[in-house]
Amino acid sequence: MMRAFLIFFLVSSAASADVVTPTRTLRPGSLITVEDLSVKSGEQVGMFDRVSDVAGQEARVALYAGRAIPFAAIGPPALINRNQIVSVHFQTSGLRISTEGRALERGGIGDRVRVMNLNSRATLFGFVQADGSIEVKQ
Rank of each mutant, 00 (worst) to 15 (best):
A59P: 04
R121S: 13
L6P: 11
Q44F: 10
V54C: 05
S16T: 13
T33G: 14
Q129N: 02
G75F: 08
V136F: 14
D18V: 12
M116R: 12
V54G: 02
A15W: 10
T25E: 07
V20H: 01
F71H: 11
V88Q: 00
L26R: 03
Q44Y: 14
A59L: 07
V11S: 12
I134V: 14
S30Y: 03
R24N: 06
I97Q: 03
V136M: 15
Q138S: 07
V54H: 00
D53M: 05
Q44D: 07
S30G: 03
G75N: 04
A17F: 15
G108K: 05
L104D: 03
V51F: 05
F48C: 01
S120C: 12
P76C: 06
I74C: 03
L26V: 08
R112A: 12
I80S: 07
D49N: 13
G107E: 02
R3H: 11
L10S: 07
S133V: 04
A55W: 02
L95Q: 08
D131W: 00
N81L: 13
V88M: 03
D36A: 04
L104W: 02
V54S: 03
P28E: 01
E105M: 07
R114C: 07
S52F: 09
P76I: 04
A103Q: 05
F48I: 00
L118C: 06
L118T: 10
L95V: 15
S87N: 14
N83M: 14
V34G: 08
T25Y: 02
S30H: 05
M2K: 11
A73E: 04
I109Y: 11
A72H: 15
G132T: 00
S87E: 13
T92A: 08
V86P: 02
M1W: 09
N119T: 14
R67S: 10
T21V: 13
R102L: 14
A122T: 06
Q44K: 13
G94Q: 00
N81Q: 13
P77G: 07
A73L: 04
D36K: 06
P77V: 03
Y64K: 05
S93P: 06
R67L: 13
R106T: 06
D131N: 10
Q57F: 10
D131M: 00
Q129V: 00
G46P: 03
K137A: 15
T25I: 06
D131E: 04
P77T: 08
Y64P: 05
Q91K: 15
S93N: 12
A103Y: 07
G108V: 01
V19N: 01
A59K: 09
P77H: 00
K137Q: 13
G110M: 08
P22H: 00
N117Q: 12
Q129L: 01
P77I: 07
P76E: 08
G126P: 01
Y64V: 09
G132C: 01
M47P: 02
A62V: 15
F5I: 07
S41M: 06
F8H: 10
L10R: 07
K137M: 15
R102C: 09
F5S: 02
I85S: 02
A14G: 05
F5C: 02
S30F: 08
S87M: 13
V34Y: 10
D49L: 07
V61S: 02
L124D: 02
